[in-house]
Write a protein that binds this DNA or RNA. Structure first.
Lengths: 201, 201
DNA sequence: TATCGATTGGCACCAGGTATCAATAGGAAC
DNA sequence: GTTCCTATTGATACCTGGTGCCAATCGATA
């Protein structure tokens, strides 16, 4: 109703855009009760790009992350995979993976990379982690690139349990070691699997 | 160079858009050597929306996933916490946590809940998982609510390592069991911690 | 030869802006 | 009071990346 001060309006504007980046200038005039020119001057001052640019940035971000890190699927980028033998995946520790106070990676991310790889390397339709024995050898810090290497130790019985050993390194230094027991439903799949399709883990 | 048939061009177009959804019609005319009108008729026939709509869809998808998956902080909601003694957290298995084919939760989410809780229950400034020995007792499925209970077994030496045992249940049924060894930097903190602030794990 | 699908050109129009200039309101300083 | 300054608003031209529509052309085919 009553007009806000410029400062207050700028705060409001920032908040509104953050909450809903899909707002057009016209919709913002309704919410902030000022003219569209004022909205545009405000965006200029606050360096808030226009709607289309905002959408484009979001799309690019999601596109990039889909390419390199399908977050809800595999943790880490699998760069080499020899089914029922070995595999390698890369995972870079970023802001969102660390304790903000110490800059040290939360354990479950390091585990997730290893677990993802251990499951991916199993050549079967359904593969599930049954148990694991893991050691966090040294803390991993923000910015470090984790290289996980998995080796299938016993592809053993056609059906049942396989053992997979995973080592994670930062450079030459070992940071994680895990022994996974993976449950497999059936026998190995003939030919190709969906591993590369990102559907295994 | 030479013109492709309509059918071939349509295949090419689909492929190009899939590879790079950021292409404008003008850029497509360069790539396919036909007029911009043809490109637009083709998109119409193939139901390929215009650039801005494509970007908007991608932006919405990424926006939704950011909203629904706060993977970066604590996994699970801590509902009870007695520092250096015990803790309880809840975690519901949703679409984004399961293998799409089987509806079974990815192991690292179940682990993450237990790991988060094991670290949160430790009354110290810095607490890190040193090692863990875990068993996935039975698969957890979409929609199931996991109740993790952590017990500090040896708050032991003021400085150094603590053992935390975590059991995860769905209803009465045990689905996960883990023995965690947690490294703690200092002695216990006096009074409050930041556990409720979501900054511990 | 007539006809038909595929292709192209042209024009009006749209959303959601940028860029720029001018007008107005309101308060503070002189 | 008058001047000065900021904030706000109005108005216009222009831009991109389209949609929608109509007409013209080309080439093969009946």
């Amino acid at each position: 109703m009553e007009r806000l001060s410029k400062r207050e309006r700028h705060q409001q504007l920032n908040k509104l855009i953050e909450e809903n980046p899909f707002l057009t200038d016209r919709e913002l005039t309704r919410l902030l009760k000022v003219s569209i020119q004022t909205i545009r001057l405000d965006r200029l001052e606050l360096s808030i790009p226009e709607l289309r640019e905002r959408l484009k940035m979001m799309a690019e971000r999601s596109y990039d992350s889909v390419r390199s890190l399908p977050l809800d699927e595999v943790i880490g980028e699998i760069v080499d995979l020899q089914l029922d033998k070995s595999g390698i995946s890369l995972f870079e520790i970023r802001e969102e993976h660390v304790f903000s106070r110490s800059g040290i990676a939360r354990g479950h991310y390091v585990f997730a990379q290893a677990n993802s790889l251990a499951v991916a390397v199993i050549n079967d339709e359904v593969a599930l982690t049954a148990s694991a024995d893991i050691r966090f050898v040294r803390p991993v810090r923000l910015g470090e690139k984790c290289i996980a290497k998995a080796y299938v130790r016993s592809s053993g019985s056609q059906r049942g349990l396989s053992k997979v050993e995973v080592f994670t390194y930062v450079g030459e230094e070992k940071v994680f070691h895990g022994n996974f027991v993976i449950y497999r439903s059936h026998t190995a799949i003939a030919g190709e699997t969906e591993a590369e399709g990102g559907n295994i883990l």
